[in-house]
Design a protein around this nucleic acid. Structure first.
Lengths: 137, 137
DNA sequence: ATTAATCCTATCTATTTGATAGTATTAATT
DNA sequence: AATTAATACTATCAAATAGATAGGATTAAT
C-alpha cells in the first residue's frame, strides 16, 4: 500500500499541473478544496515536495506553489520515493533504499528472487508514468 | 513493503515444506533456529497460519506443525493476504480487500489506472509462486 | 509423574500514519 | 505605513501497526 500522504501528493501535483496558467501560483487552499485533502496536512506535503525540488513556493499575498520542472519530467517513482521511501517489497531488493536482511543469507534466500521480479514488473509500469501522463486521461 | 512477519511466515513455510519427512511434525524451535526468527513471534505467526488452514498443529510432546495441503497448493498471494492483508497499492484497486477512497471520484481518478496496472503485473509474478516453487531454487 | 511441545492472554515499546493548532514571516495592495 | 492573505515553521497529538516478550495453561507421549 502507498500512504494517503503519497496519494495526496500525487493528486496535488496533478492539480497544480492542470491549473498553473503561468500567471500566478496555485494556492494550498484551492488544492485542498478541489482534491478533498485536509488543508494543514497538505501544507506539510507541499513543503516536503518543495524541499525535494519538485515544487517552488512563493510566500505572501498571491503566493502558492508551482512545478519547478515541466510535468513530463516529474516521474511517479520520484514522488513515491520522496514521500513513502522504497517501492520494493523487501529492503534487500530495493534499488534506492537497499538494506540487507539480518535474518537471511541473501545468496541462498528463497524469497529474494520473487520480489526482484515483482520490483522489475512494478517499475516497468511506474517508470513510464509522469505527472504529465497522469493528467492526460 | 511486506512486513517482517510476512517474510517470516514464508520462510517458516518453506522450512516446514523442506523438513516434513512424514514421520513427525516440525517444531517451532527448530524453525526459529534455522531461519533466524524470534521464537515467540514465530509462535504467533504459526498459530495464525493454522487458524487460516495453511498448517495443522499437534500439541504435546513430539508436537509441531505440518502443511495442511501439498506445498504446490499454497500460493504466495494467499500467505501475503493472510498476514499483511491487501497486495495492491491502493484500497480502491484491491481485488480481495477493496475499499473505496473517500477523497476521490473513482470514475475520474487519475491515479487508479496506474495502480491497477501495477497490481496486474505484480499478480502475474506472484500468482505462479507457491511454497513448492520457492524451495526448488 | 515427567517432559516437552503448542496454546493463550496480556503486555510492551517504538514507529508510522494522519493529522491539528498556533504563531511567525513574507509580500502584494491600498 | 497599514492591511490582507499567503506560506513557513514548531509543537503536538491520537490511533494504528509493527515487532516483539513474558508467563502460565493445556496437551500428549513416554
Amino acid at each position: 500500500m502507498i500512504s494517503n500522504k503519497c496519494k495526496y501528493a500525487i493528486k496535488a501535483l496533478t492539480y497544480i499541473a492542470r491549473n498553473d496558467d503561468g500567471t500566478k501560483a496555485v494556492m494550498t487552499a484551492d488544492i485542498a478544496l478541489a482534491q478533498d485533502i485536509p488543508r494543514k496536512f497538505l501544507e506539510i506535503i507541499l513543503r516536503d515536495l518543495r524541499n525535494n525540488r519538485i515544487l517552488e513556493s512563493k510566500r505572501g499575498k498571491d503566493g502558492g506553489f508551482r512545478l519547478l520542472r515541466p510535468a513530463e519530467d516529474i516521474s511517479l517513482t520520484e514522488i513515491m520515493r520522496i514521500i513513502d521511501g522504497p517501492i520494493a517489497m523487501l529492503p534487500c531488493v530495493s534499488l534506492n533504499y537497499y538494506r540487507s536482511c539480518d535474518d537471511c543469507n541473501e545468496a541462498q534466500c528463497e524469497v529474494k528472487s520473487v520480489f526482484e521480479q515483482v520490483r522489475d514488473r512494478t517499475l516497468e509500469v511506474l517508470n513510464g508514468k509522469t505527472i504529465k501522463s497522469l493528467i492526460l486521461n
